[in-house]
């Protein structure tokens, strides 16, 4: 690094250069700092280089923090796959029946949009809900259990991949939107329903066949993990008119891989 020659000045030796940089980084011993201080007094070239490098590092240190895009955190969280929660915490979660019958559950789900939330939050202490818990929850979560196809059919998506196949239908009745899910997979599968910004709140899941392994609502997305023959209904409720025509975005995963993305029109016309 002899570019100082370009300026017509004699190059500063490597030892002095190391002292200058070490001083800038606060890494010099007192002896080394004394040595540099002497050089700064006796050598104009060292003094000049010290000033220049100090300016460069100050400019670097003063570069402002750049604001990350607002969607980034939510987008990351939505895509991250974690292992299904084990049954290890079951004993600590206590009886499900008691709290299932309270309004806490629905109140909790109503907070889903925009707030990072998992079903483990509810009045259970700090332990996450387990796969077995979720299975027990299914069928009892929704107060307004939809046990059959109700409402006007708005849209549907047919899946036919090697790992996951079936049908999802979106229906509407009043303020209630229901996703009737009928899927078949050999291995673990997951349906992610993104409803953030649609003016909807999560209203519950009703199991009709096979347990849903886990249900979580995170940052405006419902994650439903299951396997085998699956039939369940996801309910969403209109709470505002915001973006009421924006389609619901669905992502289907099988064996941890995204196999299909789809949009379902919320508006009939």
């Amino acid at each position: 690094m002899n570019e100082q020659n370009d300026t017509g000045r004699a190059p500063v030796d490597q030892h002095a250069l190391a002292l200058i940089n070490g001083s800038i980084d606060g890494e010099l011993s007192s002896t080394e700092q004394d040595e540099l201080d002497r050089l700064l007094v006796t050598s104009p070239n060292v003094r000049k280089l010290n000033e220049e490098l100090t300016t460069v590092t100050r400019l670097l240190d003063e570069l402002p923090e750049v604001e990350a895009p607002h969607y980034l955190q939510e987008s990351i969280e939505r895509q991250v796959r974690l292992p299904l929660q084990s049954d290890a915490g079951l004993e600590k979660t206590g009886r499900l029946g008691g709290w299932l019958s309270t309004n806490w559950l629905r109140t909790g789900f109503a907070l889903a949009a925009g707030v990072v939330l998992t079903v483990s939050v509810y009045e259970m202490g700090s332990e996450p809900i387990t796969a077995r818990d979720s299975a027990n929850l299914s069928g009892t979560i929704a107060k307004r259990a939809i046990t059959g196809q109700q409402g006007v059919l708005l849209d549907s998506i047919q899946l036919d991949t090697s790992a996951l196949s079936g049908l999802v239908e979106l229906r509407n009745e009043g303020e209630l939107f229901t996703l009737d899910v009928q899927l078949t997979s050999d291995g673990p599968s997951e349906l992610v329903v993104n409803f953030a910004g649609h003016g909807l709140e999560f209203d519950g899941v009703t199991r009709l066949q096979e347990p849903v392994d886990s249900v979580s609502v995170v940052a405006g997305a419902i994650h439903l993990a299951s396997h085998g023959e699956q039939r369940y209904t996801v309910s969403l409720r209109r709470i505002s008119e915001a973006q009421q025509d924006a389609p619901l975005q669905l992502e289907f995963f099988a064996n941890g891989e995204l196999v299909q993305q789809a949009e379902l029109n919320v508006s009939k016309f």
Binding site: Q73, I76, E77, V80, L82, P83, L84, Q85, S86, A88, V116, T118, S120, V121, P128, S216, V218
Partner: peptide
């Protein structure tokens, strides 16, 4: 996170 706790994941991402 290894036990599947999404809240822990959220905190690490944050």
């Amino acid at each position: 996170c290894k036990r599947g706790d999404r809240r822990a994941m959220t905190r690490l991402v944050s």
